[in-house]
Amino acid sequence: MSQQFDLVVIGGGPGGYEAAIRAAQLGFKVACIEKRIHKGKPSLGGTCLNVGCIPSKALLDSSHRYEDTVHHLADHGITTGEVNFDLPKLLARKDKIVDQLTGGIDQLLKGNGIEWLKGTGKLLAGKKVEFVSHEGETQILEPKYVILATGSVPVNIPVAPVDQDIIVDSTGALEFQEVPKRLGVIGAGVIGLELGSVWRRLGAEVVVFEAMDAFLPMADKALAKDYQKLLTKQGLDIRVGAKVAGTEVNGCEVTVKYTQGGEEKTQAFDKL
């Protein structure tokens, strides 16, 4: 079976759905293919809305409010009693925000007459697209144009194989069901620092390993310098020039082997 579209967009993240909407506004008949299943149901929005920018910002917001209440309200002459947080509710708020925004994208596609094809798209020769639905049905689409907006996935680091239990990727670090006492983070990039900051504010002891000698090397140097001071003051132990050489999971903890300043070192964590 074949359907005729002017344009097929493979990927329903910020690059894909924006392109699909604009093309539809210009009069194209558009289909958007997205395969993601999030929390058991098909979801638009890509990494950013489901397991990236949006949920991490939601957790940053909640953890910031908690930290301000515990440590900084007194600076304003405001006193409180004992302050606690409910982690399941905190995570539920994050999920609600994700659902609202991804659902909004679904409505935007419908409102612009775009067909959301739920499944996997594969580019074939001659601008043909093979679409396989989640139910296993296959269609060959022959649009005039194809846009590839397939997004990103976490990089696999051979020295720290992810098991989504003790060693997790950024997606797993959004879903801890309790605050780890000791958290190791490989990489002082934006994602590692955001999630390290979230769990530090909620009580974890956080060590960040950065193999390069520079902190946030892709950012403006003055900004990176100020940001490093801010995070260090917050309590993150940031170790630049620290290259992870291996990991060993033993029961409920993981030992990280790393080199720094020519020395071989080890440190144990509850989560990495």
Rank of each mutant, 00 (worst) to 15 (best):
199 W>Y: 14
197 S>L: 03
176 F>C: 07
200 R>M: 04
243 K>P: 01
172 G>S: 06
190 V>G: 02
203 G>W: 00
206 V>K: 05
240 V>Q: 12
207 V>Q: 03
228 Q>C: 10
205 E>W: 00
156 N>K: 15
223 L>R: 13
156 N>W: 01
240 V>P: 04
224 A>E: 03
159 V>T: 15
179 V>P: 06
168 V>H: 08
198 V>Q: 11
197 S>C: 02
201 R>K: 15
195 L>I: 13
241 G>P: 03
166 I>C: 09
205 E>H: 11
210 E>L: 01
237 D>G: 04
236 L>T: 07
195 L>A: 09
185 V>H: 04
171 T>L: 05
235 G>R: 08
242 A>N: 03
240 V>H: 00
214 A>M: 05
192 G>F: 09
187 G>F: 12
212 M>R: 08
199 W>R: 07
197 S>M: 02
232 T>F: 05
160 A>D: 12
200 R>D: 04
161 P>T: 07
178 E>R: 13
186 I>N: 03
227 Y>C: 08
213 D>E: 15
207 V>M: 03
179 V>F: 01
208 V>P: 06
220 D>G: 11
205 E>G: 05
221 K>Y: 01
165 D>N: 13
181 K>T: 10
241 G>E: 02
173 A>Y: 06
183 L>C: 00
218 M>I: 14
242 A>Q: 05
229 K>H: 14
177 Q>L: 12
157 I>Y: 13
214 A>P: 03
241 G>N: 03
228 Q>D: 14
185 V>W: 04
163 D>T: 02
229 K>Y: 13
211 A>T: 04
197 S>D: 01
235 G>H: 11
185 V>R: 01
182 R>C: 01
165 D>G: 07
220 D>L: 02
231 L>Q: 12
174 L>G: 00
224 A>I: 07
230 L>F: 13
170 S>I: 06
186 I>F: 00
159 V>W: 07
216 L>D: 09
209 F>R: 06
181 K>H: 08
232 T>R: 15
176 F>H: 07
189 G>A: 09
209 F>T: 05
205 E>A: 10
186 I>T: 00
223 L>T: 15
237 D>C: 02
215 F>W: 10
219 A>M: 14
189 G>T: 06
225 K>Y: 01
173 A>G: 14
229 K>I: 08
223 L>S: 14
186 I>L: 12
210 E>I: 00
244 V>K: 12
237 D>M: 09
163 D>R: 02
240 V>E: 07
194 E>N: 13
198 V>G: 10
194 E>P: 09
230 L>A: 14
204 A>W: 00
181 K>Q: 15
185 V>L: 04
212 M>A: 11
239 R>N: 01
191 I>G: 13
175 E>S: 10
198 V>L: 07
201 R>P: 03
190 V>S: 04
206 V>R: 08
245 A>K: 14
194 E>H: 09
210 E>V: 06
205 E>M: 10
245 A>N: 11
231 L>T: 08
214 A>G: 02
221 K>A: 11
242 A>Y: 08
165 D>W: 00
221 K>R: 14
181 K>P: 05
211 A>G: 14
223 L>P: 06
218 M>Y: 11
195 L>H: 12
173 A>P: 10
190 V>H: 10
161 P>R: 11
183 L>R: 01
241 G>I: 06
188 A>T: 11
244 V>M: 12
165 D>E: 11
241 G>A: 05
208 V>C: 08
170 S>C: 09
244 V>A: 11
